[in-house]
Design a protein around this nucleic acid. Structure first.
Lengths: 253, 253
DNA sequence: ACAAAAGTGTTATACGTACACCCATGC
DNA sequence: GCATGGGTGTACGTATAACACTTTTGT
């Protein structure tokens, strides 16, 4: 019997009014994990690659047609007990949206919302009104999957499937790549100020924004950005310069 | 129709007599790519995870029972045209053997051999007697897969499937992780001298061994190793100290 | 004019690099 | 004792971090 092949997509965006990183979660309409919040998923079609399927998911759920460099493979999750019942593989991708469009619950979803992303102690936290979820605090792969089958599973505090583990892996990956391939900055759109960039770095590194010195940040990451002009300031204070990502650093040379 | 799910395993070892990194290739006995050399593969069973399947492949083909930290996931390759005919996914793993056991052609293989691993210009090279293969020189994912279907495919110079691409990705990954998580050093066995470690670093970084200064290497990587004694010298010159990897750095904390 | 926001510059320190020198072994 | 292989130490240059200062805007 062949396992089911699922594309799981971790979709990031940035709210320019609240200055928060956001993450898309979906309330599932069907089993398994009906009525649980979880990462959006789709099934791969016979004629498409997994990358294409991840982009198709974004097109279908959000209505954005993205170039392929907005998506990147995270890892593949294959533990036999990751889904109760049938065997299911998850090919996990991350997608960095250049904007934060309004959401509508699509096919297979009872609801779809943006969750603000920040941290609390050593875990990351997702929040939307009353709803709060966390990445798992468990560090070891085997330990995590051993406790998975018989854990308390309250849909108001627990994500469906192994998605709190997958999310932890995603956050780690993004954090590790901040200094040499910060594709996550694509969520800031085409142009961004250094402060916005520092905001994103700060969340993933779990440090306060003020602890990242602007002068040093600019010097240390100058190879990643190129200046493209000055933002029009709508507040007291000097208007910030705007930068864009060097495309070079987003791909593998 | 569900695609076929294949585990592809890139198996590394170290030849302590020739001081070369080695890589396992298999001559395929069956279609597709019959009589081509390729990376060893297996199919995932319903009850096992992909990690377990990768370790099982090592056990069946080589007869070594390894702990799970010897294996690490590389990526998943899903391009529809990566295998002519049927749809097939490759979940690629890398395995670092602590020794280099003799090989026997197992099930599905007409031959199985260790290929010495070095570099030539900007590509990596695999060699065994007359047989020489290279990692692909193509840098872009789409460009590679576009030329894949109609490339010249001589079994004496070309690996089967997209394995020259997968190998390139593997080498890049290992190279990127050398300075913070050099699991590749597991191929040196439990204990190793700094010179052996530098030998491994040199191949993957595509520089001559002499260009890596021993004194500086030791200082820059002291967090990765701990000393465990001195080797018994069987040659003129001072005997080298031996080190082992800090287990800490092999896992994600 | 002043406060707020952001860019620029300066210094002290840490780190990586190059290279010289010292030590242990086999013959 | 000398050649060989390997470990140790130092001095230099570059990169990072801390922090002070200057510039530009809104009120």
């Amino acid at each position: 019997m062949q396992p089911k092949i699922t594309i799981t997509n971790i979709i990031w965006s940035f709210d320019h009014t609240t200055k928060h990183v956001n993450l898309l979660l979906v309330k599932r309409a069907d089993a398994p994990f009906k009525d649980y919040w979880a990462l959006p998923e789709t099934v791969m079609r016979p004629s498409e690659s997994a990358d294409t399927a991840a982009l198709r998911l974004v097109r279908e759920k959000i209505g954005l047609e993205l170039a392929s460099f907005h998506t990147e493979q995270l890892a593949t999750f294959t533990q036999p007990n990751r889904v109760p019942g049938d065997r299911s593989l998850s090919l996990a991708y991350m997608t960095f949206l250049p904007e934060m469009p309004p959401l509508t619950a699509g096919y297979g979803a009872a609801d779809a919302r943006w969750f603000t992303f920040d941290y609390e102690a050593t875990q990351y936290r997702l929040q939307n009104d009353q709803l709060i979820f966390h990445t798992t605090a468990i560090k070891d792969h085997d330990t995590y999957y051993n406790q998975l089958t018989d854990r308390s599973a309250d849909p108001n505090t627990t994500l469906g499937f192994d998605h709190d583990w997958i999310l932890k892996v995603a956050c780690q990956r993004i954090c590790n790549k901040l200094d040499y391939q910060p594709n996550i900055l694509l969520i800031l759109g085409d142009y961004f100020t250094l402060k916005r960039a520092r905001t994103v770095f700060a969340v993933f590194q779990q440090v306060p924004l003020e602890s990242i010195d602007n002068s040093n940040f600019k010097k240390n990451h100058k190879h990643l950005f190129k200046p493209v002009g000055t933002s029009s300031a709508k507040h007291p204070g000097r208007p910030a310069k705007e930068y864009q990502l060097n495309y070079f650093d987003l791909t593998n040379e």
